[in-house]
Design a protein around this nucleic acid. Structure first.
Lengths: 218, 218, 218, 218
DNA sequence: CATGAATGAGTCTTCATTCAT
DNA sequence: AATGAATGAAGACTCATTCAT
């Protein structure tokens, strides 16, 4: 890119290899989104990546390994955006909570191909526990971070009878359900609406922290 | 049905056929849950149903048709339970709302094989719109029934700044997300907890209708 | 064939299946002989049998299973011919010994395609012990039968310093080596010559039982 | 060998190349023995030789060429040992005959990996005449040398009715058959026994030259 | 000389579907 | 109405070979 003048792409061997790998993962995401899990063949992935047929088994051991690496990529990418949102948000728990909840509906996370991918993997969850195990850890870390935020907010606001854990599960579940709505009914849903739905819940839960005026200008 | 009088065994042809069809659909659900969408083959479905190999193409036009019928069966079954819960619940909107939300976590709806099936179909949602279209209608009817219930409750309680539609989406999304939790993390989740998480939201939204004391005896 | 007038091939299902299996085994033998082990593909076997491509995995679990069944067939066939020769020969040990040694060089055993097959399997002997194990039993039975015959002959003739076991190994080894000559150098060898070579050894070993006059009319 | 004076490492280019070639041939022998002909891939050969993947096509034109060179190496090696035994043996025909027959069961010729290799090639004999042609010449020279030895011995001993050619074929065939026994049934056979079996034949054929006492001290 | 990423033809295997029984 | 042998297309995977570095 900023390679300057002389050569446009010397690329060491290792770099070239890494780049091919990533191309294949991206092509996999797109293919799963477009054709579904079952109809995603290695030939189509390779074609999508502009590479030759036999290449997948060169970079990844098997089709399954490619899928696993794809899921891990998605998981890692999600984790990075999540924590960046967490870190970049204002200092209060309420600000951080809102920030991390909202990124689910901002690019590139809310990219519809990615959503389709997530649910394709969820669809295999019961039959291939390996898949889910791959991203459980990330999930658990994020989850307990939300529990902590909720606990802080509940204490700050002296909200009664609110269990941080149940609140967190509710928020997470709602996010996932809203993703599904976005995927299944894209015509009647959009990220903005999803965020508004989520804020409705936040306002009900924590009226002192998320006052009504707040969302007028959202 | 309109079958002679006494004998239970002989079964009219139509009934025998119907019974085989249903066996195949049940076997399909179990296979999808156990092996996933991609690894569900007609041979295995037939074996699971205790029938012969070529039978599926006899009762259903194709594999795709079998899947579609399976999804329709699931959808119809869900709709029936939903409306029975609606009808059987007490007369108030709040009672009906709670009743229909809770059935998602009661048998046979919350059966894990069925959950796995739903998400297997969701996983194909983007690539095979036909599948989703098959159950959209039922969903929409239920959805607007919930909107109506919420509107009534909001009016009864004079809850301010609550949009019935957003509230409904939030509740529906949370339900679906809780299903996913049940599917993906069965060890740390159970239907009881899911219901409690849902009630936490109801109490926050409609404190007058779902007072805290209320759930003590749930 | 001699089906007569009415129908030429009713063939029950089971018969048809069995016939297809055998066609595939025969085609396998011919292909191994013609193209060697490595270049024998299922597609070519199927083509040779006049059947469709996917059929092998229907009748046999895998390519390997087909090969194993082919070897078993060869082994069984050999055993049957061997014992028939044994039983049909005159009553003396010498007559039986000569008879069983000679069948190695009579049709159908000495058929060159079959020889090629045997050595193709021997070629895989070290790397795939499974193959050889499949026909070890038959071999051992025949082998000890020869040892018995030799022991009888040695006692009858009071031949000194002859160990029946070593004699048997020598005879068996020579037979196998002669097969190899037939396979590798068909231009300078033929079954007749192989038999004569074998008789030369018999005459040297057991001159009283295999006198020189004896083979003049062979 | 004729290398400069002091430094042993640097190795001229030609020598380095030659060394790599030989490493590859050795690795090929080991791989054929271990995995069989069909499963011997260039990648595995290269790995066995501790060299890089593309190297084989650099040193040899093709896989087939590598196999051919391997067979030629085996053939040349065998010929060298054979003639050394011939030359080193005592001056009589009987001594030379025994010597050359016995080397088949002495290292490195009787090395089991090498045996496996020979039979792997024999297994391809019918389908790839090229392979066998590669070592026919050596064989023929040895063969006729044995015929000469036998003729001399027969004349010396005035053995009646013994055709030197048939005797030679019998001895050669037995040797090859004993190799096969060593390969296929290593548990019940060993080189010592093979040699004894061979000597049993020699004693029967040429009792004056190979008296019974002779082998007592073998 | 040597490396190893990339290619693409070829192989085994699976499976939906058909059809004679 | 049911069976299961047979078909043939399609897919995952392997591997000899090439070539830029």
């Amino acid at each position: 890119m900023s390679q300057g003048q002389i050569q446009s792409a010397p690329l060491s061997r290792a770099e070239g290899k890494q780049r091919s790998r990533q191309k294949l993962i991206t092509a996999t995401i797109n293919s799963i989104a477009k054709r579904g899990f079952a109809d995603t063949t290695l030939a189509r992935v390779a074609e999508g990546a502009g590479l030759s047929r036999g290449i997948v088994n060169f970079h990844f051991r098997s089709k399954d390994a490619l899928f696993l690496e794809t899921l891990k990529f998605l998981s890692r990418e999600y984790g990075e955006h999540w924590w960046r949102a967490f870190d970049d948000a204002g200092p209060t728990a309420a600000e951080k909570l809102e920030a991390v909840l909202m990124i689910d509906f901002k690019p590139p996370i809310s990219n519809r191909n990615r959503l389709a991918c997530w649910f394709a993997f969820y669809g295999e969850a019961k039959s291939r526990p390996t898949y889910m195990a791959a991203c459980t850890e990330t999930d658990e870390v994020n989850y307990s971070a939300i529990v902590d935020l909720c606990r802080t907010i509940i204490e700050e606001g002296s909200y009664e009878n609110l269990d941080p854990e149940l609140v967190t599960q509710g928020l997470s579940a709602m996010s996932e359900g809203l993703w599904l709505d976005l995927l299944v009914s894209p015509n009647t849903n959009d990220p903005e609406k999803s965020q508004e739905t989520l804020r409705t819940y936040l306002r009900s839960l924590f009226p002192k922290h998320f006052p009504i005026a707040r969302c007028a200008d959202a």
